[in-house]
Computed example of a mutant assay.
Amino acid sequence: MTTEDPKQLAGHAAEALVRELAVDKIDLALVLGSGWSAAADEIGELLGELPLSELPGFSAPVVAGHGGALRAYRTPLGKTAAVFTGRTHYYEGRGTAAVVHGVRTAAAAGATTLVVTNGCGGLNPDWGPGTPVLIRDHLNLTGATPLEGPTFIDLTEAYSKRLRELARTVDPTLAEGVYVQFRGPQYETPAEVRMAGILGGDLVGMSTTLETIAAREAGLEVLGISLVTNLAAGISPTPLEHAEVIAAGRAAEPRLRSLLGGLAAVL
């Protein structure tokens, strides 16, 4: 990121986005986390694609399992969806502005709805690897925020109840839970996982909450979906590995394709 004001930089990126992808504006944005990128092709007609790193303020993703492209699709409802196949994580040390730059860019390009996804550890033994779970609420344990100064944003309904209900018209089996973001990049200890559970958490990971805060500041309605890629530390009988996250995403690809395709037809 540059020293330019983050919101001005997002505006410049939005101008480049609509110009390079030859679209008038963006209606819907999707941020695809670990295990999700390969499922995007069911969203609709591909209108264009470009490397994220070619847009102002973006960098190439550094995490295996994340794509590095921005794609535009025409959804079945005739809307334009921008799909970010990678994201910047807070643990990369680039600051919160870099983490939420994609969300702010989408908002500046006209988006009113955000679908934010991630791969995560699950605390519920009934949610095996490959289970998508709607995010009902979150706990931000990073100690950080993308907001500056007296910017008081109401997060009573950070994740839209209306959109969760719409998602269940696509897949009635979707459960929901509370997502807990730790800073990372190390995985959580068993004690930290127990703490998350005591605080009311059902899912643990290293993304999403800062993006949701920025989205709500920008007035976007947010649908959050976690893909449980493994049982969390202390619940899982084996040590945690990132390769397990990628493998779970690949195994879940048919279900995720169906879910994203169905969402694109109702959002």
Rank of each mutant, 00 (worst) to 15 (best):
M1D: 06
T2D: 14
D5G: 06
P6S: 12
K7E: 14
K7C: 06
L9M: 08
A10W: 07
A10V: 11
L21N: 13
L21A: 13
K25P: 02
I26M: 07
D27L: 08
L30T: 06
G33M: 00
W36P: 06
W36H: 10
A38F: 07
A40K: 11
L47G: 11
G48S: 10
P51E: 12
E54R: 15
L55Y: 01
V63G: 05
A64F: 09
G65A: 12
H66M: 07
A69M: 13
A69C: 08
R71I: 00
R74D: 07
T80V: 15
T80N: 14
A82K: 00
R87V: 10
H89Y: 12
H89G: 09
Y91S: 06
E92W: 08
R94G: 02
G95F: 03
V103E: 01
T105R: 05
T105E: 09
T105G: 00
A106V: 01
A106L: 07
A108P: 01
G110D: 11
T112K: 13
T113V: 15
L114P: 07
V115G: 01
V116D: 02
N118D: 12
N118F: 04
P125K: 08
G130L: 07
P132M: 09
V133A: 00
I135V: 15
R136E: 10
L141G: 01
A144M: 11
P146S: 10
E148P: 06
G149E: 13
T151H: 13
T156W: 03
E157P: 01
S160N: 04
K161P: 08
K161L: 13
K161Q: 11
R162V: 15
R162D: 14
R162P: 01
L163K: 06
L163N: 00
E165P: 05
L166M: 12
L166A: 13
P172I: 07
V178G: 00
V178F: 02
V178R: 06
Y179L: 03
Q181E: 12
R183S: 15
G184T: 03
Q186W: 08
Y187N: 03
E188F: 05
A191V: 13
G197C: 08
G201C: 03
G205Q: 01
M206I: 05
L210H: 12
L210D: 07
T212E: 04
I213S: 05
A214N: 09
A214M: 10
A218I: 02
L220F: 11
L220D: 01
G224A: 03
S226V: 07
L227Q: 07
L227Y: 04
T229R: 05
N230L: 08
E244M: 07
I246Q: 00
R250A: 14
A252V: 05
P254Y: 04
L256T: 02
R257E: 11
G261C: 11
L263R: 03
L263K: 00
A264L: 03
A265C: 12
L267I: 15
